[in-house]
Computed example of a mutant assay.
Amino acid sequence: SIVNAGVSGYGTDQELIWLKRLWPTIKPAIVVLVFCTDNDRLDNGTNVRYGGYRKPYFETSADGTLIARGQPVPKSLKLLIRDEWLPRHL
């Protein structure tokens, strides 16, 4: 069977987090990763996407292992203004 677990707008950092959540359930024999050279490098180096929305990301430690950062994901400025009374009325 085939599972399409792709999510539009995800960078490879978010895809890795998603795959780690799915792996125990679906136990894939093969994983196909599509990498876009136009934007994935930039997306993987920051925790901000689409004009201010935040996302998890990874940093590389001195020994080369990946360290997950930005979790839980903080609210973006746009959502903070939309959801909170004080910022909306300043």
Rank of each mutant, 00 (worst) to 15 (best):
residue 5 A to W: 08
residue 89 H to T: 01
residue 44 N to V: 07
residue 78 K to G: 14
residue 51 G to D: 00
residue 29 A to L: 08
residue 1 S to R: 00
residue 41 R to A: 04
residue 11 G to W: 10
residue 27 K to E: 09
residue 39 N to W: 15
residue 11 G to S: 15
residue 24 P to S: 08
residue 69 R to M: 13
residue 29 A to T: 08
residue 80 L to W: 11
residue 36 C to L: 14
residue 7 V to K: 03
residue 31 V to M: 01
residue 18 W to D: 02
residue 14 Q to W: 02
residue 90 L to G: 05
residue 6 G to H: 03
residue 76 S to N: 05
residue 16 L to G: 05
residue 40 D to I: 06
residue 25 T to W: 05
residue 50 Y to S: 14
residue 72 P to Y: 13
residue 20 K to F: 02
residue 12 T to P: 05
residue 57 Y to L: 10
residue 9 G to E: 00
residue 76 S to T: 05
residue 75 K to S: 11
residue 75 K to F: 12
residue 85 W to R: 13
residue 79 L to N: 13
residue 11 G to L: 12
residue 64 G to N: 00
residue 21 R to W: 04
residue 74 P to F: 09
residue 46 T to R: 04
residue 34 V to M: 07
residue 75 K to C: 10
residue 81 I to N: 07
residue 61 S to D: 01
residue 20 K to R: 13
residue 86 L to Y: 07
residue 19 L to T: 05
residue 90 L to E: 06
residue 22 L to S: 01
residue 2 I to F: 10
residue 54 R to T: 14
residue 75 K to A: 14
residue 5 A to R: 00
residue 13 D to Q: 14
residue 27 K to P: 00
residue 39 N to Q: 14
residue 8 S to Y: 03
residue 9 G to S: 05
residue 6 G to M: 01
residue 13 D to Y: 13
residue 33 L to K: 03
residue 37 T to H: 12
residue 64 G to C: 02
